[in-house]
Amino acid sequence: MNGDSEGIQEPFDLIRLSLNERVFVKLRGDRELVGVLHAYDGHMNLILSEVEETIMLVDVEGESIPASQRRINVAKRKMEMLFVRGDGVILVSPPSRA
């Protein structure tokens, strides 16, 4: 297999072609990141810059209310340069080409 070919033969090729592009990362604990991907390894450890993190928090007070109707609070924060440990990563999505 030619590692330099532009084709996508295996899942990690999709991430390789997203280097220096803005990617969407879904993490454990209802967290999401959007940032520019600069490095990754086989554990899905990532280095991202210009990161915006979104944390989804469901209101705990309304426990009598059905889960589907509970209010979801969203917390956002920005980080310049971030190492993300791979064991928390659920998915990495390349930039939309739309």
Partner: peptide, 17 residues
């Protein structure tokens, strides 16, 4: 560890890629 916030000015992103 979940994250480590790094000093951006000391990370050479071109080299990393």
């Amino acid at each position: 560890v979940r994250y480590v916030q790094l000093p951006a000015q000391h990370v050479d992103t071109q080299l990393l890629e």
